[in-house]
């Protein structure tokens, strides 16, 4: 056991971690930030995606102790300063980009990374970037529409693929 400190959503946070403690466990159990979900626990579904030093990372596939001193952003850090939904979150609501909502935290974090790298992606680019985020409700079309809307682009009435 050792103490691990990271800047999480702008605030310095400290919690215990064993060598084997995963980032997602440290966030959920150590900090009680339960917005980051564990979907598959086999590194395939992307529900646990958070940003580490600005890059998307599967929080279930990285060890907390390795990230001592890192800057982390989770879904809890995606709302606007006044507590209202951020642009991407609002677009997910507007375009019905979630059904059961379990994959949504990861989808929103991946979408945020995409729009930072590529502010006006094509629909194909959105689909390619979200390849590592699985929605078991299979609501992909509306997720893609939400990301297109969040980027300020026109949203096709019917998804292409």
């Amino acid at each position: 056991m050792g103490k691990v400190t990271m800047t999480v959503n702008g605030k310095s946070r400290t919690a215990e971690a064993e060598g084997r403690t995963l980032l997602v466990e440290w966030l959920r159990e150590g900090l009680r930030l339960t917005g980051t979900h564990v979907g598959c626990d086999t590194s395939q579904c992307g529900a646990c995606v958070v940003h580490v030093d600005g890059a998307p990372v599967k929080a279930c596939t990285v060890l907390a102790q390795e990230l001592d001193g890192a800057e982390v952003r989770t879904i809890e850090g995606m709302a606007d300063a006044d507590g209202s939904l951020g642009t991407i979150q609002q677009a997910f609501q507007d375009y019905h980009g979630l059904q059961c909502g379990f994959c949504t935290p990861g989808m929103v974090m991946s979408a945020a990374s995409l729009l930072e790298e590529n502010p006006k992606p094509s629909e194909a680019e959105v689909r390619h970037y979200l390849e590592g985020n699985i929605c078991r409700c299979t609501g992909y079309h509306n997720i893609v529409k939400a990301v297109m809307a969040a980027s300020g682009q026109e949203v096709a009435p019917v998804a292409a693929e």
């Binding site: 590194s43 998307p56 990372v57």
Partner: peptide, 9 residues
């Protein structure tokens, strides 16, 4: 390779 999150790490 993999997906964007895999490529970060």
């Amino acid at each position: 390779i993999g997906d964007p999150a895999v490529r970060s790490r």
